[in-house]
């Protein structure tokens, strides 16, 4: 397989790799390739910081205590005894 074909195979695994969804065999292969290929590494880095930016954009704390009190009150009105 040529270097170009190898790069193409590796970038096909870009999203599954970054999502931690690759089988072990592919995980090892991608890591080994990235160790040696700066061009592919730059693609993966760009995608990784993009995913981090998505996560930052939605980083809102979810305080569920008021919601829990509201749900329990609704359940008690439905007949459930207080937990």
């Amino acid at each position: 397989m040529s270097r170009l074909d190898d790069c193409r195979e590796i970038v096909r695994q870009l999203w599954p790799y970054l999502d931690g969804a690759l089988p072990d065999e592919w995980q090892v292969r991608v890591v080994a390739h990235l160790d040696a290929c700066t061009n592919c590494t730059s693609h993966f880095d760009f995608a990784r910081v993009f995913l981090e930016a998505i996560q930052r954009s939605g980083a809102v704390s979810l305080d569920v205590e008021p919601l829990r009190a509201r749900v329990v009150a609704a359940l008690e009105a439905e007949g459930m005894r207080a937990p």
Partner: peptide
């Protein structure tokens, strides 16, 4: 496969337009 390859091409587009580090 096309979607992942598109990610690579979009990286190239970002770099060519000087916004490669935009997310950071």
């Amino acid at each position: 496969d096309l979607e992942t390859l598109a990610a690579v091409k979009l990286h190239a587009l970002a770099r060519e337009n000087g916004v490669e580090d935009m997310f950071a």
